[in-house]
């Protein structure tokens, strides 16, 4: 019988300190995330230096908790996978150095993972991937459509030219005086309202898979501004519903079009905005009739976590990728060049 493969994942690219261990690429044996969201609320966002300090404080605790959950010792670990980038440099450095320390002290191979590759590979913890496939990655910092012809191969066929979808949500929420993070609040309001306000959809040039949410954001701000100036009140639920409809229309339409052009077998949803109920529902409806397998991971695997880093790390480890002790945090890491 072949020995089981245990890979540890470490993720600290933004505001979550996370450590996980997975078995044979798809079975979670430990998954610990120390959410820092409470301490960030009062700042209305992620504060990098505060984030790094929290990562330092929480790393050992999260790490020990993960080892306890898995009931493993260092001897059992085959590799340590860590997020190299992109993200906040101060935050990334904590994870990279923790991983290097464990790797060096226990002579365990080190593997460097791209954060977005991790988000995509979160899906492998739910269902085996079948290629070629497309992944729609939507989060606070990213909006991308990624084509994969095989494991470890990434081609970004579309990305945002200005604001990320999650960021547009947060900025619109700010305009409506909703608390941070704004995404879930807009999603909740949108369920209560109707898309009564006509807002733009940025399709860009014909055939483009790129996105733009800046114009939509401005349009929402102008609408609120104009109504207020005329002394009228804004129905926040209808504005939220209209905004959400506009974002989802573009995301779903472009994903469906790419699915057909690239003739993929699978479409994977990834990133924090995958938690959005409106988006999940619209995708499920759009793919219902298509001969394509739509995979939507559970919420706990959509937001930043380390199990996804371990999942991507497993594939890279099996492909022979190894990082040395000179591994550094790379805040602007490129997905296509990385692997």
């Amino acid at each position: 019988m072949e020995k089981d493969l245990y890979i540890m994942g470490i993720e600290t690219s933004c505001d979550e300190t996370a450590v996980a261990i997975i078995k044979n690429g798809n079975e979670i044996v430990a998954n610990v995330v120390a959410s820092q969201i409470e301490s960030h609320k009062r700042f209305g966002g992620v504060v990098p230096e505060i984030a790094s300090r929290h990562h330092v404080e929480q790393m050992t605790i999260v790490f020990e908790e993960a080892m306890n959950q898995a009931n493993l010792t260092f001897v059992d670990l085959d590799a340590i996978a860590v997020t190299e980038g992109p993200g906040l440099v101060g935050a990334l450095l904590i994870g990279v150095n923790a991983a290097k320390a464990i790797s060096f002290a226990h002579q365990i191979p080190l593997v460097a993972v791209h954060h977005i590759a991790g988000h995509i590979y979160a899906n492998r913890l739910v269902k085996e991937m079948s290629f070629p496939l497309l992944s729609l990655v939507v989060s606070g910092g990213h909006t991308e459509i990624v084509f994969m012809k095989e494991h470890g191969h990434f081609q970004v066929i579309g990305e945002t030219r200005d604001d990320a979808a999650g960021e547009a949500y947060d900025k619109v929420a700010r305009t409506l005086n909703l608390p941070y993070p704004g995404g879930p609040h807009i999603d909740r309001l949108a369920q209560e309202g109707k898309p009564t306000i006509d807002l733009p959809r940025a399709w860009l040039e014909e055939g483009s898979y790129d996105f733009s949410f800046s114009g939509l954001k401005s349009s929402v701000i102008n609408t609120v501004h104009n109504l207020t100036q005329r002394g009228e009140t804004v129905a926040p639920e209808n504005l939220a519903a209209s905004f959400q409809q506009s974002v989802i229309d573009v995301l779903v339409t472009k994903t469906v079009r790419a699915t057909k052009e690239f003739q993929v077998k699978q479409v994977l949803l990834a990133g924090g905005v995958a938690a959005n109920r409106g988006l999940r529902k619209a995708l499920e409806e759009a793919f219902y009739e298509l001969p394509v397998d739509l995979v939507i991971p559970p919420l706990s695997l959509c937001t930043d976590n380390a199990a996804m880093i371990a999942a991507a790390g497993t594939v890279l480890f099996e492909k022979g990728q190894r990082a040395g002790m000179d591994l550094n945090a790379n805040p602007g890491l490129d997905l296509e060049i990385h692997n």
Binding site: P48, V89, G141, D163, G332
Partner: peptide, 14 residues
């Protein structure tokens, strides 16, 4: 490279 919003990551380098 496409220059997009740095709001989420605070700093982007090109």
């Amino acid at each position: 490279k496409n220059v997009n919003s740095p709001t989420f990551t605070i700093i982007k380098e090109y």
